[in-house]
């Protein structure tokens, strides 16, 4: 009798521990997730870190102040319609303070490591096209996947061991609108920070 109950329990546990799913359904779901991971990787690597449009910070500020329309055409990008554009920027500076995730630099600019939620990196990379997305929701999901990687994984890891007074190099993206001119400094959403 005891043996029978034991076998019954094993059967119940065994049944509940296995979940069968069609391979095609599984593949379809995984491709979606993998596709996002691959896209985020290529945006960060090709679209930002190896992008020839990546401009040294002081040079970018100078170009924006001199001729915004030209700078926008040559270096900026924006998906859809709007007055501002997004730019890739790199620099080297010393940290003067770190407060609530905002890294203040001695050149006047700052790296916002806490609020990486916007379209800065996505649009500045020029790696995303509106035609690739059937709905706004899909486009927003990619944006959040990209920002989440930077905000929750990559940047916190790179910030470990970095302190006030350290000299760092950085790569990131920023937004500039006509009303921001004349520019003296930038708020940059970082993609890479190195000590």
């Amino acid at each position: 009798m005891k043996k029978g109950i034991g076998i019954l329990i094993l059967l119940v546990l065994g049944y509940n521990s296995i979940y069968l799913e069609k391979l095609s359904t599984r593949q379809q779901r995984d491709v979606g997730v993998l596709d996002f991971i691959t896209r985020v990787d290529s945006i960060l690597l090709q679209g930002v870190l190896n992008n020839p449009l990546l401009t040294e910070e002081q040079q970018l500020i100078k170009q924006l102040n001199n001729n915004l329309i030209n700078a926008q055409k040559q270096l900026g990008n924006r998906l859809g319609i709007g007055e501002s554009a997004y730019y890739l920027v790199k620099g080297k500076a010393r940290i003067t303070s770190i407060q609530e995730g905002f890294v203040q630099l001695d050149n006047g600019s700052g790296l916002d490591t806490q609020f990486i939620f916007g379209n800065e990196v996505r649009d500045a990379s020029r790696m995303v096209n509106l035609e690739d997305f059937k709905s706004q929701k899909d486009l927003n999901a990619l944006t959040e996947a990209l920002n989440k990687r930077l905000r929750e994984t990559k940047i916190p890891k790179e910030m470990q061991g970095i302190h006030v007074g350290d000299e760092i190099t950085y790569v990131g993206a920023c937004e500039v609108a006509p009303r921001d001119l004349p520019l003296k400094s930038l708020t940059i959403y970082p993609v890479e920070i190195k000590h």
Binding site: R78, G80, I81, E83, L130, E131, F133, K134, L139, A177
Partner: peptide, 9 residues
């Protein structure tokens, strides 16, 4: 394009 986003300030 199926969707054209217009920026919000």
């Amino acid at each position: 394009p199926q969707h054209i986003p217009v920026g919000v300030n």
